[in-house]
């Protein structure tokens, strides 16, 4: 609760906000990298993408 009696929930400190932001950016970069990897591998393999050898 703040002074006006409103429920403010958990308030992050500046350090916690910075850490969360850096983690969010890392997750975003990883997801983009995964998409690019699948895209490039699809180009490389072409129709062979669906062939699943041992």
């Amino acid at each position: 609760m703040n002074e006006q009696g409103e429920d403010t929930g958990i308030v992050l400190t500046e350090a916690q906000k910075r850490a969360r932001r850096s983690r969010s950016i890392a997750i975003a970069v990883s997801l983009v990298a995964l998409v690019v990897l699948f895209y490039v591998m699809t180009l490389v393999k072409g129709p062979m993408m669906l062939v699943r050898p041992l």
Binding site: A19, R20, R23, I25, A26
Partner: peptide, 13 residues
């Protein structure tokens, strides 16, 4: 207990 919001950085991971 509710865990404190994490301070873990990318470097920690």
């Amino acid at each position: 207990t509710i865990a404190e919001p994490s301070l873990a950085t990318v470097g920690d991971y």
